[in-house]
Design a protein around this nucleic acid. Structure first.
Lengths: 113, 113
DNA sequence: GTGACGTTCACCCATATGGGTGAATATAGG
DNA sequence: CCTATATTCACCCATATGGGTGAACGTCAC
């Protein structure tokens, strides 16, 4: 229960969990496309693709412009910067650890000599 | 069905979906900790924390060293680089789009004058 | 208007998740 | 040996996901 609050970052990471959704984003790097166009590239049903697209939209990674009966989709990579910033924080931590290990090994070698 | 294959990247992004798990990683940036220590920082049960930790382990983001009855956990940010690399690809795409838009606006302004 | 096309809606099903509880297991320490 | 502590295991429950199907809705094209 409880009002899971559902931050935007949750949605972004959640959208990236699924390989099909990542592939959809990759597909849209190439060119904008309709829902049916995208569905044609995958072995699953049009309806399932439609649901994946809705989740990508929820994360803000897709823009949809409806023209007539066609829904044109385009990539909107902007929200990824939020996720990237989060990860970047830990990359620095990680590099710090590696640097510390490196310093340790160097020190040890120096003492050995 | 299916044999979902479950690539490593899936697990990493999946681990990052949940705010509690992200908070656990943040907690471990500060210092290594036991399962119980971590559970003390959250309003949910020890068992739930244990499950979150198992998922972080599955993603390779945690290391566990069992000493006696204590399980010492330490952050292992290494696998994040894979996720970061994936995102980085799209950031470059996105910046390319912005640059193109910028060039377009600049060109338009020049023509206006 | 009528039929074909593009998307979504409303369901069904199996599995995973996030939370809980109580019991089992394993080790530390008298 | 016995007890307290640290974790996990085995469940229960509600909800979300990922897949499917068939029907509805909207729009184009004749």
């Amino acid at each position: 229960m409880g009002e899971r609050h559902e931050s935007h970052l949750d949605h972004v990471f959640n959208a990236l969990c699924d390989p099909t959704r990542r592939a959809i984003l990759a597909r849209l790097t190439d060119a904008d496309a309709r829902v049916t166009d995208i569905a044609g590239d995958f072995p699953i049903s049009l309806n399932s693709i439609s649901k994946h697209i809705r989740m990508l939209e929820r994360a803000g990674l897709l823009r949809r412009s409806i023209v007539g009966r066609d829904h044109m989709l385009s990539l909107n990579a902007g929200p990824l910067s939020e996720a990237q910033a989060w990860i970047e924080n830990y990359r620095r931590f990680w590099e710090g650890r590696l640097a510390a290990l490196d310093a340790y090994v160097t020190r040890k070698n120096r003492n050995r000599r």
